[in-house]
Design a protein around this nucleic acid. Structure first.
Lengths: 189, 189
DNA sequence: ACCTGAACACCGTTCAAGT
DNA sequence: ACCTGAACACCGTTCAAGT
């Protein structure tokens, strides 16, 4: 990884693009016009492509903070005594932000497939899956959650709830209800 | 509804467009190029728009047979003695076809929202929801399924499983596993 | 080293002209 | 009554020219 500092104008454009993209994705979903983002950020379209060769690279940059937060949260929760509650809390936090920008949950599901392995979002999805895997395994060891559940299946299903919640009047409430159902299915016996 | 027979060439174009669209949607998902569909069907793009003013009108025409089949299947299953098994069977059948064309499950979730109420797919989604509602209510009356489950929530979640399964190596297997989990959550006590 | 914006390809959608 | 395809707008992506 090249860590030499960017030229000042490059850095400024980079930052501006991320902030503008965040707003655009929030407004129009993950499919927002890249041309429009470049225009609104006041840069040429080539500059956008130089910094972010694909739409997903840009989306990844926008989501980075949230993803890092989720990973840190998982680490904190691993210290909790109640493994089942820790898993439940993390999934609720995960879904609390999943409805925005619209389309994110779909992209994460896609990013879990093999073809995305060496993209930024693919790596992010893998990291999320690992974090969830640790919480899940602990709950399974504690005998609270069925042993046959696979972290990838669970992450996919959690994101699926995210997809379904996006078009709902109250995404948070829907996600919580569905997660409660799912959790009853996950429990042993 | 105008039921006067179409002119022979119009009818032929109409049929050709549906068959071509079915192939295109299967190959490239529900976002397949409409222009390309018109070309492959051998008609001008205006003709496509005359018959199907929106992408969803065309998709609805393509899905019509499958949807009708699902509604009929629900009726048959209502005659079964075991209400819980009937519900489970219908959901499995529903998901068996959900992974193709890619994007269908997402569209159905969208079609359930209020804005789609007076579109063809909106009406279809409502009919599917009603059919599921009847199976669900019967299973609830029988005491097999939790009373607080809402058919709309359940249909959304079922389609969510469909979305998640699309990008999976074996969609059918994934859907069955997730449905089994979900079902455990749906059961009483 | 980085930026700009014109250029190209592609797609959705409309509509004047045709049969 | 229906069809065609040119025309327009919009978007993604590349790259030659500029600083």
């Amino acid at each position: 990884m090249d860590t030499r500092p960017m030229r000042a104008d490059a850095r400024r454009n980079y930052e501006r693009l991320i902030t503008t993209a965040r707003t655009a994705f929030m407004e129009h979903g993950t499919g927002a016009s890249l041309d429009d983002i470049a225009k609104r950020a006041g840069v040429g379209s080539g500059t956008l492509y130089r910094h972010f060769p694909t739409r997903d690279a840009l989306l990844h940059a926008v989501l980075r903070e949230r993803i890092d937060g989720l990973l840190a949260h998982a680490d904190e929760l691993t210290a909790r005594p109640d493994a089942e509650e820790a898993l439940g809390r993390w999934l609720r936090t995960y879904l609390a932000g999943a409805a925005t920008p619209r389309g994110t949950s779909t992209v994460i599901i896609e990013a879990m497939s093999a073809e995305w392995a060496d993209t930024g979002l693919g790596a992010a999805a893998a990291a999320i899956c690992d974090a969830l895997g640790r919480l899940l395994e602990r709950a399974q060891r504690a005998g609270a959650i069925r042993a046959e559940i696979d972290p990838r299946d669970l992450l996919r299903l959690t994101n699926a709830i995210g997809v379904a919640s996006e078009r709902t009047p109250d995404p948070g409430a829907y996600a919580d209800r569905m997660l409660a159902l799912l959790f009853d299915g996950l429990r042993t016996g």
